[in-house]
Simulated scan of single mutants.
Amino acid sequence: MRPFGTDIWLADGAEVDVAGFRYPTRAAIIRLSGGELLVWLPIALTPALRASIDALGEVRHLVAPNSLHHLFLGQWRDAYPMAKLHAPPGLRRKRQDIAFDGDLDEGAAAAQWAGDLDQVVIRGNLITTEVVFFHVASRTVLFADLIQQFEPGSLSGWRALVARLDLMMAPAPEVPRKFRAAFIDRARARAAIQQVLAWPAEKVVMAHAPPVLADGQAFIVRAFRWL
């Protein structure tokens, strides 16, 4: 786990296999103004990671940013039974075995971290509805799957071909072509991205791409230029 700015830390986890592709995983741990911790995109919870997090404070919120990131929620629920587990649109239906405490598309959830985090729900996509966050203190935008980049040379054979065609191995992080095609309501998506661009972003964190350390707003404009 490493510091990424004021009251935010990043933790890289083990790769996970999805449809034959090995995806890197990344979580963000954010200390809210009241001192409690929020974990964005919970990854595999190892003893070392848990010890590092517990040294920072008490975990009170667990956030899955879209319906694709749910593999390790049970581990975190067991480890932190007092933390509130927040569901993005569609995940309650997908994981009926998990008891969620709130929904990210409701104002009640956002009110619990108002002033520390802002959030925008990116709707209109057939693959998933992603909730994008902005951490005010570090001026960091958090994307889960909407922007991706595999490390060049990390894939070979048919996987490398598919990744290149899907823009997952482009020279810079991009919105994959499958996600672009899945936006059936582009007007709604554009309105949401305009809200994201209203944030004074300096840095950008993505689950499946290297973090952006400067000029975050310009980076987001470029990534969504097709929209």
Rank of each mutant, 00 (worst) to 15 (best):
A189Q: 12
E202S: 11
A201Y: 07
A181K: 08
A209W: 01
K178P: 02
K203D: 03
A198Q: 12
V196Q: 03
P200I: 09
L197H: 00
P210T: 02
A181M: 03
V205D: 03
R188D: 10
A191C: 01
V212D: 03
V196H: 04
A182Q: 12
R177D: 05
P211R: 12
I193H: 05
A198S: 10
F179H: 15
A192R: 05
H208S: 02
Q194G: 10
V205M: 10
P211K: 12
V205P: 00
A198C: 13
R177S: 05
I184C: 07
F183T: 07
A209F: 02
A182R: 08
A198Y: 00
D185G: 07
A181H: 10
R177L: 14
A209R: 00
V196I: 15
A181V: 06
P210I: 02
F183P: 00
E202T: 14
P210A: 07
W199A: 00
R180E: 11
A191R: 08
F183G: 00
E202R: 13
Q195V: 04
R188V: 10
R180Q: 15
A192C: 06
A182H: 13
M206F: 01
P211A: 13
A181T: 07
I193L: 13
R190E: 15
R186C: 09
A187V: 13
A207C: 07
V196K: 01
R180D: 09
V204W: 11
A201M: 11
I184L: 14
E202M: 07
R186K: 15
K178C: 09
R190M: 13
A192P: 10
P211H: 11
L213C: 08
Q194Y: 01
Q194M: 05
D185E: 09
A191H: 02
Q194T: 14
A209S: 02
A181F: 10
R190F: 05
M206I: 01
L197N: 01
A201P: 04
R186W: 07
K178H: 15
R190D: 12
R180L: 07
W199K: 12
R190I: 14
I193T: 03
M206C: 12
R188T: 15
V212M: 04
A187M: 12
R180T: 07
A182G: 14
A182K: 10
V204I: 14
P211C: 14
L197A: 01
D185F: 13
A201Q: 09
R188L: 09
H208C: 05
V204D: 09
D185I: 06
A189K: 08
R186Y: 10
K203C: 05
R186S: 04
I193D: 06
F183R: 05
D185A: 14
R180M: 14
V205I: 11
M206R: 02
M206Y: 01
V205H: 04
P200A: 08
A192H: 08
F183M: 10
R180W: 10
L213V: 11
I184E: 12
P200N: 00
A209V: 00
R180Y: 11
W199C: 05
V204L: 11
A207G: 15
L213E: 11
R177M: 08
Q194N: 13
R177E: 06
A192T: 02
R190K: 14
